[in-house]
Amino acid sequence: MNPVNYLYLAALLFTIGATGVLIRRNAIVVFMCIELMLNACNLAFVAFSRMHGNLDGQIIAFFTMVVAAAEVVVGLAIIVSLFRSRHSASVDDASLMKL
């Protein structure tokens, strides 16, 4: 098997995640889909690391994880406060950005 298949898998997962972001209304699920996209990227980075024979790709994946962790913390805090004020976790309910 050619290790390039890992990249195809990453692309597939990324696309599924992105489509999920667009389709789902529940903010938590949207957030999970974003995590899925980040993980797909990480898989690609790890695969690249193996291809190039150096560890830089893994470092980037590591940083991605850290950033994802920070993002999850802030994002979930936002969802919680949103739920508190609106009693709903639907992203469509927060549609004040229109004329």
Binding site: V21, V91, M97, K98
Partner: peptide, 17 residues
Amino acid sequence: LRKLQNGYARSYAVSMF
């Protein structure tokens, strides 16, 4: 064009995507 500005973050996300 204003109708594109429906306020739904998901619609904006589609255009980004």
